[in-house]
Design a protein around this nucleic acid. Sequence first.
DNA 1: ACATAAATGTACTAACTGGTACATTGTGTG
DNA 2: CACACAATGTACCAGTTAGTACATTTATGT
Lengths: 229, 229
Amino acid sequence: MGDTSRKPANTRKAHWKQNPDGVKEDILRVATEEFAAHGLSGGRIDEIARKTEASKRMIYYYFGDKDGLYQAVLERVYSTLRENEDALKVGDLDPVAALSRLVEATFEAHANTPLFIRLVMIENIHNAAYLRRSEIIPGLNRSIIDKLDDVCQRGKEAGLFRANADPLELHWLISSSSFYNVSNKETFSTSFGDTLYTAQGQARLKQRVVDMILGLVVIGYEPPLVVSE
Amino acid sequence: MGDTSRKPANTRKAHWKQNPDGVKEDILRVATEEFAAHGLSGGRIDEIARKTEASKRMIYYYFGDKDGLYQAVLERVYSTLRENEDALKVGDLDPVAALSRLVEATFEAHANTPLFIRLVMIENIHNAAYLRRSEIIPGLNRSIIDKLDDVCQRGKEAGLFRANADPLELHWLISSSSFYNVSNKETFSTSFGDTLYTAQGQARLKQRVVDMILGLVVIGYEPPLVVSE
DNA sequence: ACATAAATGTACTAACTGGTACATTGTGTG
DNA sequence: CACACAATGTACCAGTTAGTACATTTATGT
């Protein structure tokens, strides 16, 4: 093996380091993009193999089959999102400010994770079949409900919130706007123009969602009359 | 093989009537279900051919290719929906009742047309590429905006509505909850249980959405304190 | 009736795509 | 150092699926 005689053919990894987790992670990263872009049936294993450092062989080695890979992608994305949720602390804010902050944070979090949104859209197309099959996901979204519950209780005790304010309903209401904002951006823009999807439009929408939620929950709430932009 | 010598083999159409529109419509009906169920890439032409009275040959004869069929499905569904929208009249209601009715009707219309919702979800996965390519769809959803605009103007003139109430924003807000309610039913139920998707839950959600919108628009609005269920 | 075009049936194919068989290389362990 | 096992590369296959070639039947206008 003289100094020049060694020609490793494929330079990128002349000799592979044993790093299964790195390989798995790389595959998952690429697969997430592929499935988010084209769906489960539209996603191509060969395309994932082409874009990853690993090979098609390794995809099947670690994830079994296409469904297994999709499931792993789904679980990974849900986990990532839970971590984000957990990071948000509003315990030291007064109830109204806390609720306001939770709504804004949810709206922004959705806007910042379009890949997640797309995967959830796709999963709904599959009637949540893979989500249901998952063992790690049920109860994963608990933390956001807990936070809303805490805020609601504090708000009610302070006599600021209506008695019928319900954490689960609130989560649904907040999520619906936040999710739709990302999921239906393209069809909505196509039908009605992109006024609501400019920076100003998005800021205004976010404010409206906050106003709606506060209006529903906070007794005697009057939205700040932000007039001209 | 009985005494009756005439055995038409396939009884359903011993000799076909020339009825191109009927055939096209039949294909579209079946294709709508197929694409709504499995998406564009997941939908199978052979499966559509099997379920329709017509044959695979006729699908290509009338619609060219898979994309053409999908596009036709999309346009047909959007058109149907426009007709539904047009049918709704709220001109003779006072502004608050009219807005309330528009929200309820939108919520219900979405709940009643899951196939449409699924196709829009799928179209968003495709970044609205086919919707954009359509020549008949732009401006098709105009009528709902017109209705909201009319109601807003009447409400403002009567001094009932806030000055910044905006028809497009309102449509977005109303649609978001109505759409999400159907589109994300499966993942939401899986994560948080189906309390909100029982008959009572749905009625309550609908009421909440109405309350939110009225709270945002109607000056001094206080939601009716529907307490116990 | 007859020509012409529209509508339909049958059988086929070319390409794609998920998945696998088999050989090989690297790594930790006794 | 040898052995077992984990990790990887290469080439391949079998089933699926969109799309087509070609022949045939029905309606229609003259």
